[in-house]
Design a protein around this nucleic acid. Structure first.
Length: 426
RNA sequence: GGAGGAGUGGCAGAGCGGUUGAAUGCACCGGUCUUGAAAACCGGCAUACCGGUGACGGUAUCGGGGGUUCGAAUCCCUCCUCCUCCGCCA
């Protein structure tokens, strides 16, 4: 959530930034509306506060009058308080309405993009931040896409998953399951060695948590919701991990807070269709190791670089061709100020698949969840939150299968062999 | 799922209708003392908002929400969480 006093103080910067996202004028108008409403709020609060102050004052006097046995005077004062109370109630009501309206304006305003974010409408306009310099995999002439390899080697069963649950819920078995587990362990070990504290969080969260990281209200339809208990299946470990620090005030010396967690991720992917959804390209349940960083505002962009380097390192070790995109304004997530996507080349499909998204949210999430810290002067300030996939499994598996297929099987990357115990899937 | 108990500041823990935003202790910060440290002593130490250049003043918050009352941390209702016992169970 954007800060109202920032919008007030730097209106032009906010508007210019939001324009980069391609927001329509009607939505941009929310900025001015929020500030106007906040003016009203201040005025209302000033009046309300003075009414309440008078009420408190009188109440104290009534107490003394009663003790002194001066009933008549006390009763006169009571009448005055009753009158104040009525006025205060009506002011309180309009104050609440104004505040709800401000909140709804702010909830509908996305984060202001970082200055380096290129303008643009859609993914076509994303900037290639780092292109792949290395060689591309050379495939055998009869190379197959991963969904056919999966069937041929009996390692992923899409049909059975669909039978048990529904489409988009793959079932991994044998070496396929083993490969999943190997990747999870590899990613977690790498994260731990990079100083991230491993966490196993709950896989369902309440509405307050989903709101804090920004999944609610803007991604409501994308989460699985357990109506009976009003809980949401997590779409990413980002939600529970970041919420570990909701409503907290850290000490400056607590930074950096580095967390990692493996969780399954659940996404409804409502509205998806077409060839994008074939095989592992887009599924409702997938495994992911996430890294989360809580950082001091002064160095959060250095932290972002550090995270990019970490993710790059993973892909280098897996020997997968990848490129890094800097998302344009139109493709940028609602809550993010700057996002880099990692795409891996899945050779048999001839497609770049997104396997990681690394973002700095600056104070946007922190403001929603009231995640603060005390700076050197003892002042309370909002922290910056960052997170990234390191990495999302399903598509990594797709690329590994396709890129590493040989005449006699699928070779396992060197770094994974100590986890899989095998060097080929046959 | 059933029965009972409890939720107060960073922690511990008083208060149970009226200058209580909240005693006291611990922790923490500053000072005095000391060559230095400890001890002792003195002072400070919640969050958010409103008004004010500022000093400062005001309002709200004692798990969340609602109610009773001139006045609520204190009484009532409701929800949540934790603890104990019973039931069920990986």
């Amino acid at each position: 959530m954007l800060l109202i006093h920032e919008l007030r103080a730097h209106r032009e910067r906010a508007i210019t930034g939001l324009r980069k996202r391609g927001l329509k004028e009607a939505q941009l108008a929310l900025v001015d509306k929020a500030v106007d409403l906040d003016d009203q709020r201040k005025e209302t609060q000033t009046r309300l506060d003075s009414l309440l102050a008078e009420r408190n004052q009188l109440s104290r006097e009534i107490g003394k009058l009663f003790q002194a046995g001066r009933q008549d005077e006390a009763n006169t004062a009571k009448e005055r308080v009753a009158q104040l109370k009525e006025e205060a109630e009506s002011l309180q009501k309009s104050m609440n309405e104004i505040q709800d309206e401000i909140e709804s304006c702010l909830l509908n305003l996305p984060n202001i993009p970082h200055e380096s974010v290129p303008a643009g409408q859609s993914e076509e306009d994303n900037e290639i931040y780092r292109a792949w310099q290395g060689s591309m995999p050379v495939l055998p002439p009869d190379a197959l896409p991963h969904w056919e390899l999966a069937e041929q080697y009996g390692i992923i069963d899409f049909k059975l998953g669909a039978f048990i649950t529904g489409s988009g819920f793959p079932l991994y078995r044998g070496d396929g399951a083993r490969l999943q587990r190997a990747l999870i362990n590899f990613f977690l070990d790498e994260a731990r060695e990079a100083g991230y504290v491993e966490v196993i969080p709950p896989y369902m969260v309440n509405a307050a948590s989903a709101r804090a990281t920004g999944q609610l209200p803007d991604k409501e339809g994308q989460m699985y919701h357990m109506e009976k208990d009003d809980l949401y299946m997590i779409p990413t470990a980002e939600v529970p991990l970041t919420n570990m620090y909701r409503d907290q005030i850290l000490q400056e010396s607590d930074f950096p807070v580095k967390l990692t967690g493996y969780t399954p991720c659940f996404r409804r992917e409502a509205g998806s269709y077409g060839s994008d959804v074939k095989g592992l390209n887009r599924v409702h349940q997938f495994d992911k190791v996430e890294i989360v960083h809580l950082a001091h505002p002064d160095n959060s962009y250095e932290v972002l670089d550090e995270m990019l380097a970490h993710v790059s390192g993973l892909l280098d070790k897996l020997q997968l061709p990848y490129r890094i995109l800097r998302l344009c304004g139109g493709d940028l997530g609602f809550t993010s100020a700057l996002t880099f996507d990692f795409e891996v080349y899945s050779a048999a499909q001839g497609k770049w698949l997104e396997v990681s998204s690394v973002s700095n949210f600056e104070t946007y999430q922190a403001n929603r969840m009231k995640l603060r810290f005390k700076d050197g002067n003892g002042k309370t300030r909002l922290a910056h939150t960052l997170n990234g996939s390191a990495l999302a499994l399903a598509r990594i598996v797709a690329a590994l299968l396709e890129n590493n297929q040989k005449e006699d099987g699928i070779s396992i990357p060197e770094v994974l062999r100590r986890y899989t115990g095998i060097d080929m899937i046959r």
